[in-house]
Design a protein around this nucleic acid. Sequence first.
DNA 1: ATCTCTTGCTAACGAACGTTAGTATGTTTA
DNA 2: TAAACATACTAACGTTCGTTAGCAAGAGAT
Lengths: 194, 194
Amino acid sequence: MKTVVKKSRKQQIEEKATTLFQSRGYAATSMRNLAQDLGIEAASLYSHIKSKEEILQRICFRMAEEFYSAWQEVDEETGGNAAKMEKAMIAHVKVITKDTNASAVFFNEWRHLSEPFLSEFLAMRDDYEGRFKKILKDGMASGEFKLVDDKFMMLTILSSLNWTHNWYKPDGSLSPEEVGKRLSGLLLNGLKNN
Amino acid sequence: MKTVVKKSRKQQIEEKATTLFQSRGYAATSMRNLAQDLGIEAASLYSHIKSKEEILQRICFRMAEEFYSAWQEVDEETGGNAAKMEKAMIAHVKVITKDTNASAVFFNEWRHLSEPFLSEFLAMRDDYEGRFKKILKDGMASGEFKLVDDKFMMLTILSSLNWTHNWYKPDGSLSPEEVGKRLSGLLLNGLKNN
DNA sequence: ATCTCTTGCTAACGAACGTTAGTATGTTTA
DNA sequence: TAAACATACTAACGTTCGTTAGCAAGAGAT
């Protein structure tokens, strides 16, 4: 037996918008495009939302929250920094794979946020990236990691992780957990045989 | 003594457009924005270009050519596949760092190309990615590389390389060559100490 | 001296944009 | 049964969009 949860119209709008923003981009998606996909008139959207940008804001900040929540299990890790980094990478990938469309919008369309949302968004991103850098620094200090530029390293790691939204298919053979493990395995141990 | 090469107006337009497309996105950049940055009227642009999209096409396909040309030195590498992969990564990063703005447009705005340019673009990208996959496959067959999914691996490598356009600063301390070396070192050998 | 090329202008086109006002209808709540 | 809410409509607003037509002025080439 399958219970069908009724989605609010606002939610439906947000989901369709997410798909459209992902495929055509925020700026190139018109409210009339969105309305048509929902089978209503453009003006009708405004019974449910305040503005086009509100939709973008909701998508971006909801995803930000998800990334933050996922970090909880990272802090619980008491093993070494390599283990902690693996946890972080897996948690991060899990969030992305749970909604690749929303992730794409999060990663590519945030620049269309207006102030003060843009500044708030960037501050959160900085903070989040700082957490990765901290693991790297701790791991280098303890001798677990090679000595590298931590910012350079963090950017490289996150770019690999963040790209998953472009190719991950939920119906594929790899689970989110498995994707995260492979990515962390690669970045921690490298491609070459020793 | 410095020789000043006079740039054609068309080139100037293309360069300003590259900067704008990079920072605001193609769809969110208007011809009036572009004209204003050049100190002329929007209509005047059309004495030099055929359409807004023509600019995007020129940027995207010029970058594609650059990536292809850079591959020449990769084919000359006769060492192992690890050496070849390093060459490929360095060559790729060199192209990106030579013009980070155009690279950003190339990576983020190609989807606004209309047919048949879009199909042509994607075919080239597939071909180019195939070259990376081939090195990976050869390297796995020869035992140089660990056995991994080659597509997954290729995507991970390229996402790391392609992200450089977002943070590389030509006036920074790292040369393009150095960036490429560090990236390949990391991806080939991993972050962890053995 | 004439021709061509480059560069730019004003004026305007039709289309599309995000959004608002005002209204109607059915559904849920009190 | 009345009030409140959810949902959607038509009509239209002012703005911006990419682009074209037609014209003009200066530079370089023949």
